[in-house]
Amino acid sequence: MEVLQPHYDRLIAAARQVGPVTVAVAHPCDRSALEAALDAAALGLITPILVGPKARITRAAEEAQLDISALTLIDTEHSHASAARAVQLVREGQAAALMKGSLHTDELMGAVVSTATGLRTARRLSHCFVMDVPGRAEPLIITDAAVNINPTLDDKVDIVQNAIDLAQILRFDPVKVAILAAVETVSSKMPSTIDAAALCKMADRGQITGALIDGPLAMDNAIDPAAAAIKNLKSPVAGQANVLLAPDLEAGNMLAKSLTFMAGASAAGIVLGARVPVILTSRADTVQARLASCAVAVLVAHSKLSSARVIEG
């Protein structure tokens, strides 16, 4: 049975409206990576530049009966060189986003965070899943589920601000962030609850901006109004959060994958905090989820380009 994904449909439509951006696709040497790039190109979301070993890419395309003749292909020797060259294209202004091909995520991110030749900014890099969950009235952002393993409080400040900035680009109105823990009370025995309390006070002081923030909140009283009411939580966030900050990568990853494989949700993945958005797709992703990942990156890239033009002007 086909699962309807209305939120992704709207994201893709919005991205098509603003127009395609050039995306450097690092090491697309299998069918899944090539199909992701071709599908997004066919829909008018991106203009892909394939970066990788020409012979391997050509062979993969032939075996999958995919026509890549219209795409630019830059030949490299191996996956590390593919990641480095894709990042270089961004530094040279030839691409406005990166897309992971069939190389390991660590290889691509290693090139992105390189001190000398990478794409780092003052902001820490973090990953967001934009989830289309059946039955929800709006998308749900979960962070961080792929980059920061055991983030410190300082890390979480950047992680949550990255997510808020993304939510604003995606027109969440208002952005409501729940800082997740196992309980909704602050306990010295649970460091995640202390981090949550600190983040909320930092938001009160203007160190985090652009959202309503509350925590610690357990998962049930973060997203379910009835659960929040039972606990007598009086908060504009409790029961209606649209951004969830996980205490660590393992919790965030399990939460996102539980929604995907047990609740029929889809997860569009993107890394933020670098000069350009980084599209992370998986071979397990549906076509719609891959397209949604590209759509989110397009909207973020256009937002960055618009900000750059304002600054230059």
Rank of each mutant, 00 (worst) to 15 (best):
L98W: 10
K100H: 12
K100Y: 12
K100W: 12
G101K: 08
T105P: 03
E107S: 08
E107R: 05
V113S: 03
V113E: 07
T115P: 00
A116Y: 05
G118E: 07
L119C: 08
R120N: 14
R120I: 14
A122S: 14
R123I: 14
S126T: 03
H127L: 10
H127N: 07
C128N: 13
C128G: 08
F129C: 11
V130R: 11
V130C: 07
M131Q: 03
A137N: 13
A137I: 10
P139D: 07
L140G: 09
L140P: 12
I141W: 12
I142E: 07
D144H: 01
A145G: 06
A146I: 04
N148S: 14
I149W: 03
N150R: 06
P151L: 07
P151T: 10
T152E: 05
T152L: 06
L153I: 11
K156W: 01
V157W: 03
V157N: 09
I159N: 11
N162C: 08
A163S: 14
A163K: 01
I164H: 05
D165C: 06
L166N: 00
L170V: 04
R171K: 15
R171H: 15
D173I: 01
V175C: 10
V175R: 02
V175Y: 05
V175M: 04
I179M: 15
A181G: 09
A181P: 00
A182H: 11
V183C: 03
V186L: 03
S188P: 08
K189M: 08
